[in-house]
Structures are given as C-alpha cells and as structure tokens.
Design a protein around this nucleic acid. Structure first.
Lengths: 206, 206
DNA sequence: GTCATCATGTAAGCCGTTACATGATTGC
DNA sequence: GCAATCATGTAACGGCTTACATGATGAC
C-alpha cells in the first residue's frame, strides 16, 4: 500500500521522502502520518527494483521561493549553497521510471485486499489513473462488501444483547457504512453521467 | 488491542478462542475478522501472565442446546461425548482471573494510542467498565484530535489542487470525521444528562 | 460415510512503528 | 549563534495475516 501510494504521488511530480509523508496524508486521505522508518526503506526498495530513480538536481521547492522579500544576490547564494548540500547529505528527490509507471498501473488495478478501507481510499484518491471500467469495477466490488457488512451489523443490532455503549458503537458503525455506501453511489452516478458525454448510439436513435 | 478486546469479552462470559473471533466482530464493532493466528497465541500469552485461566468443563453453548427436537437420551450421550472430547483436543474455554480484571481496568483507562480509530472503537464498546470521569476524559481527548484532523482536511481542501477523485476522497474523509464528532457529542451529552440524576447542588441553588 | 463447520494450534513473513543517530537550512 | 524545522537513514521490535497442519462434531 505504501509503495502504491508513493508511485501514485510520483506520477505527478518528483518528490523527496520528507515531502511524500505530508502528501500521503494530505492528498491520499489517510488519518495518521506514515513514519519515515517506513518511507525511506520503501524508496530504496523501489529504486532497487528500478521503479523509481533518484534525481539529485531538479527539486525546486515552490513554497520557499515564493517569499519574495530577499535580494537577488541572497537568492543566488542560497541556490548555490543548496546545490552543494545535495552532494553531501541533502535532499534526494525521486522520479518514477517508465517501468514504474507500468507497474503502478498494474498494482492500482489489482483488486486484491480491497476489503481494507485504507487500501480502497488510496485507490480512489488515485482513481484518475484507472480506466473507467476498472474504476466502476472497484466501486461495485466495494459496494458489495459494504452492503454485506451493513447486513451483518444490522442483524447483530437486532439479535445480540448489547449494553448501551456497545450498541452505540454498532449503531455508529452502521451509520459509517451507510455514509460510505452513499459516497460509492455518488461516485458511480458520476461515472455513468460522464458516459453521456460520448454518446455514439444515442444520436443514431433519434 | 487484541488482548484488551479478549479481556473485555471475558468480563461477561467464559469463551473459547473460536467464539472470541466472532464476538470481536459482532460486539466490538471491528470490520474484519481477526485471524486465529493472532487469537490463540494471545490467549496463551494471557494465560502465561495469569490474566486468564482455561476451564475445561463449563462451556455449554447456548445456541446448540436450544434445538429442542432431540430425546433426553441423545442429549445425555452428546454431553458425555462432549466431556470426553475436551480432554483430547476439543474446546478450551478461558475465564478471566481477578488479576486479569484488575489489569483490564488499567489497560482500558490508559489513554495511550487513542488516536487510532480501532483502539477508540474497542474502548467505547467496553466503556461501561469505565468510571464516568475516565469515560468523559477519553471522549474529550478523542474529540480534540478529531477536531484537529477536520481542520487539517478542511485546509487541504481549500489550499491543495486536487483532481476530482482525490478531492472526493478528502471531502468524504471530512464527512466521516464530522459523523464521528457528532457521535462523540451525543455520547458526551448522554454522560452529562445522567449526571443530573444526582443533583446535590442544583437544589441548594433554589 | 462424507462434507461443512467447529475448533486449536504453529511458522513464516509482511508491513508497519518507535527509538535512535546524524546532519543541513532557515528564522530570529 | 541558537532553536526549530527540514531531511535522511538504521535497528529493533510489534502485531497482525497467510499458509499450513490437525482433529472433532453434526447434518444429511
């Protein structure tokens, strides 16, 4: 999952490890920060497999340039210092390779471990890289498993004797699953409404 | 977390490992079944630590007795066979010890790792074993961390440039957190409304 | 008499975290 | 110049899953 997330983020920009952590949280919808102890080994693995490569020069961090209130001389010094630092121990940016792009496409479409909420969330955040039909397939698969889960929760609420706290937990779980299901419905509705923008047969019918 | 869940379930009844799996899902609100490869080692650990003990005789499974349509003779045979089987390899029920009860109370109140949704859910499902003040403390702590998370998501939605899928994921994440917060509010409201049943000062104020 | 389900257990491996160690850059 | 933040990495450990192995019980 981490590797998939990293590859997905690198599809857009080159990034270094430190930034990846933030983006996993901010763009992929995960609750807690992934630890560096997971990220750096993952990057090294991916590089060894040839799915990503390190590029030492290119990363110009947008946010730090935009300050604006420093002289041209100082900015130039900073740039020089930065370039030197990269050679020693500084930032190491990674870029996805062609092989990596292919591998990413495969892993993203792979329906394995889709029952897991985290996995599904990450895949949806990267769903623009999927073909419409695969996207719909993943959504429908998820919907089915959520519907089953909802049935299980409902029957537990009817059958089991639960104290007020345990009952509240299960009721809240049910509402959570219902919210998820509504989301899936919306996403599926959007998928089929965007089909209409390429109506080859609809016009012939008139 | 697993050990806490097991201890919590054993607070009510003796159970054997196979049943524990089902109850973790049905009574503690967790999405997926915990694997036996985790449960049995956990039971052995807890037994070694003296927090639970195995009782070979007592488990009469309610559901299988309730069938009703078998003669007394047959029921007796089944009971005899059952008792023998327990000695060989059969069911091994566990009972929580006094030490276990004390340990359970401590672990349940321990605020460590409360940011984790699973941990919080399990604790709330077992909240009736907490004192009101500890319960309120846990709820307020959780509320604070959810509020912060919501702020982070909101600012990401305002600042970051996200494609429609990534945006949808973040919006759904926000709705999920809002649902959680509403739940916490409800639970906290219930806590303070049950305070009113012991109003010592309110009457003096009149 | 055989198949599904109940029931217990072990071993290997995966995927992460926590703790530790180091160093560069920026703001004040 | 000093603290906060940015940035990279390793080692140990934790907690779970998967796969495997075994056997009992109940239903038909």
């Amino acid at each position: 999952m981490l590797e998939l997330a990293i590859l997905g983020l690198l599809m857009d920009h080159d990034l270094h490890g430190y930034d990846i952590r933030g983006q996993i949280r901010d763009r992929l919808g995960l609750f807690s920060n992934t630890s560096f102890g997971a990220i750096y080994p993952a990057l090294n693995r991916l590089e060894r497999e040839g799915l990503i490569e390190s590029v030492t020069a290119t990363v110009t961090k947008v946010s730090s340039v935009a300050t604006g209130s420093l002289s041209g001389e100082r900015a130039a010094m900073r740039a020089r210092r930065g370039a030197v630092a990269l050679g020693r121990r500084g930032r190491k940016a990674y870029r996805i390779t062609d092989l990596g792009r292919r591998e990413f496409a495969e892993r993203l479409s792979d329906p394995a471990t889709m029952d897991d909420t985290r996995n599904f969330t990450v895949r949806m955040a990267l769903a623009r890289f999927l073909t419409p039909s695969v996207r719909v397939g993943l959504l429908e698969y998820r919907r089915t498993s959520l519907q089953q889960r909802l049935r299980e929760i409902t029957s537990t609420l009817n059958d089991a004797s639960l104290d007020s706290y345990a009952r509240s937990v299960m009721e809240h779980a049910a509402r959570g699953v219902e919210l998820d299901l509504k989301w899936i419905s919306d996403l599926l509705a959007r998928e089929s409404s965007s089909d209409i923008t390429t109506p080859t047969l609809a016009q012939e019918a008139n």
